[in-house]
């Protein structure tokens, strides 16, 4: 698409944000009663639901259970109406399977798995509307759902996708910014220690710029953490007050 400038001369992006600004994040915990933990998050126009079941007994083949840690079973699914063009296969196509794998690897590093041997934790993520940064929003939603389910975590897991245009890293890119090409770095971080749990990079980026982009991405994740933490604290305060003051 000619004429679309990802970064204008005044330093504004297509939707009027500055390069280091995140999209508006709205989230809610405990949306479902059936699931042990659930969360709904809206990051700009990307809407994601996460539900967590567990820890519970191994379902299916017991031989898949691990004797020293919990088995984490993830499923990433996109609603057929979530993308601009109708998605024929909501799950099972290669990109979804890759996302499922990444989610599993991310949460295996963040959940204290050694506390529940021979058990299973299910994490289901459903994308209702996709507008860029699908994986990052899914990770944030799943973190909230895990906190809602009361599963012990080493730390929050916050993720953020960063693009790079005109020597400027742009945080939390939308679908339009993603599809116009250019390098994209997705990073999932444990915010307190700034440790990287998962790092994905696509398209070409020169080695010299890596440090800059990485630093901006980690800073973006820490901003997400601040928002998530506030939501969790409000939710807990609300629940505690409704349970009773005995």
């Amino acid at each position: 698409m000619a004429g679309l400038e990802l970064l204008s001369d005044q330093g504004f992006r297509l939707d009027g944000r500055r390069p280091h600004e995140l999209r508006k994040i709205e989230c809610r915990m405990g949306v479902f009663a059936q699931a042990d933990g659930s969360a709904y998050i809206e990051q700009g126009n990307t809407k994601v639901l996460a539900a967590v079941y567990g820890p519970h007994e191994m379902r299916g083949s017991k031989s898949r259970g691990l004797h020293h840690k919990v088995l984490i079973n993830c499923q990433y699914s996109m609603a057929t109406f979530s993308t601009g063009e109708r998605k024929r296969r909501p799950r099972g196509d290669r990109k979804s399977q890759e996302m499922t794998l990444h989610l599993k690897q991310t949460f295996e590093a963040a959940i204290m798995t050694q506390l529940y041997p021979r058990s299973q934790i299910d994490i289901f993520v459903e994308v209702l509307q996709a507008d860029g940064g699908n994986y990052s929003t899914c990770v944030n939603a799943a973190t909230l759902a895990l906190v809602d389910a009361g599963i012990p975590l080493k730390d929050y897991v916050c993720a953020c996708t960063t693009g790079f245009v005109n020597d400027t890293p742009m945080v939390d890119i939308s679908f339009v910014e993603e599809s116009l090409g250019g390098p994209q770095l997705t990073v999932a971080v444990l915010p307190k220690s700034e440790q990287i749990v998962l790092l994905e990079m696509a398209s070409r980026l020169h080695v010299d710029y890596l440090n800059k982009v990485l630093k901006t991405a980690v800073k973006g994740c820490k901003d997400v953490y601040v928002i998530l933490d506030e939501v969790v604290r409000n939710h807990v305060a609300q629940i505690a007050s409704s349970v009773g003051s005995e």
């Binding site: 059936q34 539900a51 079941y53 519970h56 499923q75 699914s77 909501p90 289901f124 459903e126």
Partner: peptide
């Protein structure tokens, strides 16, 4: 088309 994913209830399997 209606979809009952495992997300909605522990009874449904993937």
């Amino acid at each position: 088309n209606l979809d009952l994913p495992p997300l909605c209830c522990p009874l449904f399997k993937p």
